[in-house]
Each structure stands twice: as structure tokens, then as C-alpha cells.
Design a protein around this nucleic acid. Structure first.
Lengths: 127, 127
DNA sequence: CACAATAATGATAATGATTATCATTATTAA
DNA sequence: TTAATAATGATAATCATTATCATTATTGTG
């Protein structure tokens, strides 16, 4: 197993993700980090997103379109707006759902992810 | 707006999806339906999956890899096995999570999807 | 400090999943 | 039965993501 070496690109990707509360795609992150490190490559962004996710430092949110990423790993839930396709945080207790797991389930559950679909406050206001 | 015309390909895709309880990819469905309609094209499978989903007859499950599909639309939850990458049904009351929605949320929620991650019974037995 | 080992990078080619195109075929309503 | 048009199969195109590879940066050691 190879040992991690630090890189300013990886630091910048993580810092960007931790500084924002939307849920950007790899492309979004690429564009943002490029303001700070103009030479950064999209491949490096993808590489580091994968690495950071496997380290447990960020979350990947599959959406059916481009994956989105979240720099805040404490349990919380999301809403996907079916109008603007954006993903926002919701303020709900993350515990409730796990309590509902049936006792007789033969597998092992290690985590869960809850996605709500609907209209986000911004889109609701605008329409 | 164009009016739907029936096709045996679309019927076969829907029938296949409704007859099974795994959560196949478009490719899986293509291979299965080809046993019945050897001339069917993968493009036709994708086309009809999209159409059936927009009609609300099937569910698309984003996974971060290939999308998976579900022919049973009554509310229920899934477990993604982090070992075999399969998706199985879980037997939990779908109501609990919606009750947890905060009252002061300014948007509108129309549906939700809960994905558990862990080891499925088959993989747990085998290892 | 100098250096060797190797992880990380940027550029870009390759892949895999999904969608678009287009000529042909099938379904439908009149 | 026919005209209108939705659906198909074949395949090209697109989009997101990953792999490759030569070069650069980081790190531990003498």
C-alpha cells in the first residue's frame, strides 16, 4: 500500500468543499479551485475527490446525473430539487430512520443515505 | 405532445421489470428481454426505461455506477451491498422518515428515497 | 543539504453509460 | 387502406469518469 503525500491541489479541493454548503459536481469544484490554482487539471480534481471520499473526508452523492460532493460528513439529509436539479441540506435528526430497521434482517447495515425530492425554497419562491 | 403508441418491446421491458425482485441495470434488462425478443436493441431498452420512469410505472435507482431499475413502485427501501454491489429490497415501513421532516421547511417534498449500505445476507453467508 | 524513491500532477486518450440521429417499420385513427 | 406519426434497430455522438504516461513535487535517509 502506498503512503499518501500531501499536495496543494488536494488541500485546495478539500478546502473548497468544506467552505461551501451547496453540493457541487466535479466540474463545479474544478472551476472554483482553478481560481486559486489556475494550472489544476480536471483529472486531478476527480482523482482527489475519489481519494478524499475513500478517506471518509467527503461524501459522494449519486444523483442519476453527475455525481455531487459534500464536504460535511456529519449525518444529515438532502433534498434534490426536481426543478433546478440542485441539492440542498435538510435539518432532520439522522437517527430516526436507522431505528426502523427490521430486527430479522440477515445482513449488516453500516450506513444509509436519505434523499428527498421536491421543490427547493428558492424555486418555490421564484415560481 | 405526442400520443403514446403501444409496442411489444415496451411491454416486454415493463413485464420483465415487474417479474423480478432484483434491481437490474439497463444492460441486465436488455439481456433478459433479448431472450424473448431477440431483435431488440439496447437503445430501445434505454428509451423505454426513460419513458416508463416518466410515466411513473418504474423507479430509477441512482447508484454512482450504472443506474438500476425497479418495477415495483410502492414505497419501500433498498440496501446496496458494498461487497457485490447488488441492490436488494428491505422490509421497513416507508412512513417513518417523512414524519421527521421539519415543519419550518420552506420547500415542498414530493417523495423520498432511502438507501442503506452494508453487506447483503448472501455475501454475509459466503464470507 | 543532496538524493533516491515514489506519489501526485497535467494533458490527454480511453472507457463506459446513456442519448441522439436517421432511415425503416409498426400502430393507430379516420 | 391509407395517411400520420410513434417506435424501432443500428450506430454515431455525447457526457462523465477513469487510465495512461511522461514530468514534477514530496518525503525520508544518509
Amino acid at each position: 500500500m502506498s503512503t499518501l503525500k500531501s499536495s496543494k491541489q488536494r488541500d485546495a479541493v478539500l478546502a473548497n468543499l468544506q467552505s461551501r454548503y451547496d453540493h457541487p459536481t466535479a466540474e463545479d469544484i474544478f472551476l472554483a479551485v482553478r481560481e486559486v490554482i489556475p494550472s489544476i487539471s480536471l483529472a486531478t480534481v476527480y482523482r482527489n475527490l475519489k481519494l478524499l471520499e475513500s478517506e471518509g473526508l467527503i461524501l459522494k452523492i449519486p444523483t442519476g446525473e453527475s455525481d455531487r460532493f459534500d464536504g460535511h460528513t456529519q449525518g444529515h439529509y438532502h433534498l434534490t430539487c426536481i426543478n433546478c436539479r440542485g441539492v440542498i441540506d435538510l435539518d432532520i435528526d439522522p437517527g430516526v430512520t436507522l431505528n426502523a430497521l427490521p430486527r430479522d434482517f440477515d445482513g449488516t447495515v453500516t450506513s444509509h443515505s436519505l434523499m428527498f425530492y421536491g421543490i427547493c425554497p428558492d424555486c418555490k419562491k421564484t415560481n
